[in-house]
């Protein structure tokens, strides 16, 4: 098990593999024991896996597109992110959402240096790089260099605000609506909003 840091474990077991990974066996054993003890049911577990699969960046993109097209919603979103998302019927669970707005001259980006806090209810589980040692280490110290590695070069005149998600809040970046999109529908606008735009390592582009 001598793997280098940031090694990505894939755990792809081909059909008919005969070896069960140690931690997979632990997961199966713990789940079985908890179900037998009545802590939760197998159905609870299945429903939770399905709910996780249903959480994708499309939810966050829909929130952004609504904010771009409805000024009252945008004001509500910036004031109380959780309540505004719930008003769109999005299940937010225990999440306290803070929405940070990009404006001409201000760019926001999100990191969690201590673990990997992330607005999962709106974006699904985080990508591997968000949880990696390089991103978590460098994003607070040399964020402009990190953004450049993602292909985003900010002019010096732009204020860069990094948000280290250290405690109970979760952060979503509200990107700027690209120029030349006035004729687009809300759905077409949402299609421009990628996950990375809502983390703040990219900006949306007009089609």
């Amino acid at each position: 098990m001598a793997e280098p840091p940031d090694h990505n474990h894939d755990h792809h077991h081909p059909e008919g593999a005969v070896r069960l990974d140690y931690y997979e066996a632990m997961q199966l054993a713990v789940a079985e024991l908890l179900i037998e003890k009545g802590i939760f049911s197998a159905d609870d577990m299945r429903r939770e896996v399905e709910a996780m699969q249903a959480r994708t960046p499309a939810k966050g993109a829909a929130v952004v597109a609504r904010a771009w097209t409805d000024p009252a919603f945008k004001a509500a979103l910036l004031k109380n992110g959780t309540a505004a998302c719930e008003s769109l019927g999005i299940e937010m669970g225990p999440t306290h959402l803070v929405v940070v707005e990009n404006t001409p001259g201000v760019h926001n980006a999100v990191v969690c240096t201590l673990c990997s806090c992330y607005p999962r209810m709106l974006l699904g589980p985080p990508p591997d790089w968000y949880k990696s040692r390089p991103y978590r280490s460098r994003m607070v110290r040399e964020p402009r260099a990190v953004l450049a590695e993602f292909g985003l070069r900010l002019p010096d005149s732009t204020v860069l605000r990094v948000h280290d998600s250290t405690a109970d809040m979760r952060y979503l970046v509200l990107p700027e609506r690209p120029a030349g999109t006035t004729s687009l529908s809300e759905g077409a606008l949402a299609a421009l909003v990628t996950r990375d735009c809502m983390i703040g390592v990219a900006v949306p582009k007009a089609p």
């Binding site: 402009r144 010096d156 204020v159 860069l160 605000r161 990094v162 280290d164 250290t166």
Partner: peptide, 11 residues
């Protein structure tokens, strides 16, 4: 090495 107006917000 960025610019003087850059910030980090921490909870």
């Amino acid at each position: 090495r960025g610019t003087a107006h850059d910030t980090v917000d921490i909870e």
